[in-house]
């Protein structure tokens, strides 16, 4: 083994300018038996690298991993399959809402039209119409008058109650002063 070459490679290694192949060469050299005493430390380091790179652990067998990843699959597929249907229902719901609102608005509009029909004349002769109107107004005033006389009676009661109240209040005041 050419120790000078190893010396150079080590120098390059410490400087961080060695290539992967050169590092591989160093690893191979230090795993051999003819390593001089002065490179004990380096040997330990490179041996550690090699051992660490072969460190394995039973994480999971390949079959277990395959069954694990494939068992997580169906969930995803279902979601994908469902989405187009979801969209159809969404679109259908929107169309339904639009149609019903249009229908309701149109119905409302039609009802309003019937209510707002213009008034039509019921009499041909204006005199006759005047007489009829007069009659109707008289009837109204007569009934209003009737109501007024009844209300006057209530007024009397109201006044009486007020005077009684006033007297009571005065009495209470006098009592309080005393």
């Amino acid at each position: 083994m050419d120790f000078n070459k190893i010396e150079q490679l080590l120098k390059k290694y410490w400087e961080g300018s060695s290539t992967l192949e050169e590092e591989q060469e160093l690893k191979a050299f230090f795993s051999g038996n003819e390593v001089p005493e002065k490179w004990k430390g380096e040997q330990a380091l490179f041996n550690y690298y090699q051992q660490a790179s072969s460190q394995t652990k039973d994480i999971m067998s390949d079959d277990e991993i395959i069954s694990m990843i494939t068992s997580t699959e169906p969930e995803k597929k279902k979601v994908i399959r469902l989405t187009p249907f979801k969209h159809i229902f969404r679109v259908a719901a929107v169309i339904l809402v639009i149609i019903t609102t249009l229908y309701i608005v149109r119905e409302e509009y039609r009802n309003n039209e019937t209510v707002l029909e213009p008034l039509t004349d019921t009499f041909e002769d204006p005199k006759e119409a005047f007489e009829e109107t007069k009659k109707a107004l008289l009837l109204l005033s007569k009934n209003l008058g009737k109501g007024k006389t009844q209300v006057n009676k209530i007024k009397v009661f109201n006044e009486a109650e007020n005077t009684v109240k006033n007297i009571n209040d005065k009495k209470n005041e006098q009592k309080n002063k005393l």
Binding site: K57, I59, M60, I65, M68, I69, T70, T72, E73
Partner: peptide
Amino acid sequence: AKDVVQEVFIRVWN
């Protein structure tokens, strides 16, 4: 570390 590796596989597969 094991958990992480499992999660990596699931993520790669997905």
